[in-house]
Computed example of a mutant assay.
Amino acid sequence: MPQILELLVSPVHRFEGRPADGPSPAAPGELVDRVHVRAGRGLVGDRYFGRAAHRDAAVTLIAAESLVQFGPGIGLEQTRRNILVSGIDVDSLVGLVLTLDSGRGPVSFAVRRRANPCAWMDTVIEPGAFKALRGRGGIRCSPLNDGELTLGPVEVTTREPQP
């Protein structure tokens, strides 16, 4: 069964400047047990919440299957995505509507585009991670309705967007 493994809501950017300088410190409490989603705005408390430049890409998801090649312990703190899932081929969903229900009601996302990896991946994961994650770096989405997601099993549906 598909699962939500990690949820990250961060009020700060950690990857600024040059990768050789290393990331900024993580804000306390970035990894959470639940997230509040707001339609067209993102995750409450996240650095991209309600920002005009990110309205079509306010929430990011990545599949754990993309990260297993790097060994245990690699997740959202390194990739800076918002939702880590298993059992969902998120990279194949661009252009669709993805609906997740972790028991608190369905939350739908318009999957807008890929979340391409950046050179920071070679610094925070391992050398070669940037190249290894091309085409497997996750997706950028816009929430279509308000709701809440929690860790654990999740029901997944996909559909074509409404015209």
Rank of each mutant, 00 (worst) to 15 (best):
S108D: 05
P163C: 10
G40E: 14
G45C: 07
P117I: 06
G40F: 10
G128T: 06
E65K: 13
G29E: 14
L61R: 01
L5F: 07
I62Y: 00
D89E: 14
F70G: 03
R41Q: 13
W120I: 02
E16A: 07
A115G: 04
T157Q: 13
A110W: 10
V154P: 09
M1D: 14
R81A: 08
A63S: 15
R140H: 06
P117Q: 01
E160S: 13
H13P: 00
P153G: 13
V90M: 00
R104G: 05
Y48G: 01
P72R: 12
V32G: 03
T123P: 00
V44R: 11
R81K: 13
P28H: 05
A52G: 05
Q162L: 14
A53S: 13
A20H: 02
T99N: 00
G17E: 08
G87L: 09
Q162D: 12
G42W: 08
R55M: 13
P19N: 07
I62E: 02
S92Q: 14
G45A: 06
L76P: 00
Q162C: 00
V85Y: 08
L93A: 11
A129C: 09
Y48F: 12
A58G: 07
G137E: 04
H36F: 07
D21I: 03
V12C: 13
R112V: 15
R34Y: 14
V154I: 08
C141T: 15
P127S: 13
R136G: 04
A26M: 12
E65D: 10
E126Q: 15
A129G: 12
L96R: 14
R114Q: 11
I83P: 05
A39I: 02
A27W: 08
D21K: 01
E77F: 10
